[in-house]
């Protein structure tokens, strides 16, 4: 896999814990990034985005007053959003399938479990660069295509290609153990 020069990327770190912000910032600097800002909750982060054109957001879940999921919803759907397609890496201690599912449904690109390592964080940044995601607007969902790969064994409706195979409503609603693992481990 390619080694990237990341110095022109702008990253916004959003975490209510100042030690975590310091930790992530140190990792990003060591990876050669120069344009790094941070915020302690979703509300402050959304304000920062008005003047800081971030290319990637690295976001915690549990924050007050505005948590990570509500912040992502603002990015995706607010009339004031500077970039509804902004890639988001969710960095959180919530690693059970239900939380991963909820984060995916909210429109995160990548999911990374705390505690974080430099190698894992770079792997997620690479994934955001390399897995170019189209966005899907369907019903109440607006966000990156939830399917992370083509599955040759899939027999449900190919909704996005208009090809009808067998009827199934479950493709977007059920996260398999494999999908959960893929989201957590890249």
């Amino acid at each position: 896999m390619a080694d990237y020069n990341l110095e022109h990327l702008k990253v916004l770190i959003v975490d209510d814990n100042r030690h975590m912000r310091a930790l992530v910032r140190s990792i990003l600097y060591a990876l050669g990034m120069r344009h790094v800002e941070d915020a302690s909750d979703g509300s402050e982060a959304f304000k920062k985005l008005q003047n800081f054109a971030a290319d990637i957001v690295i976001c915690d879940w549990n924050m007050e007053p505005l948590n990570g999921l509500d912040f992502i919803r603002l990015i995706r759907t607010s009339a004031d959003t500077p970039n509804p397609y902004l890639p988001v890496i969710m960095l959180t201690g919530y690693t059970d399938a239900n939380h991963v599912f909820e984060a995916r449904d909210c429109g995160v690109h990548e999911f990374l479990a705390k505690p974080v390592s430099a190698e894992q964080l770079y792997a997620r940044i690479k994934a955001v660069i390399e897995r170019e995601r189209v966005f899907v607007k369907a019903g109440s969902y607006f966000g990156p295509d939830k399917r992370r790969r083509d599955d040759p064994k899939y027999t449900g409706i190919e909704r996005r290609k208009g090809k009808k195979k067998e009827s199934s409503d479950s493709d977007d609603d059920v996260l398999s153990a494999e999908d959960t693992d893929a989201l957590l481990n890249g």
Partner: peptide
């Protein structure tokens, strides 16, 4: 279902290799 290709991709903002590559 509407499919939208985001206007800019991160690939355009990074370079590959070189002394400052990760």
């Amino acid at each position: 279902v509407e499919i939208i290709k985001p206007p800019s991709q991160l690939r355009d903002k990074v370079t590959v290799g070189g002394p400052n590559a990760v």
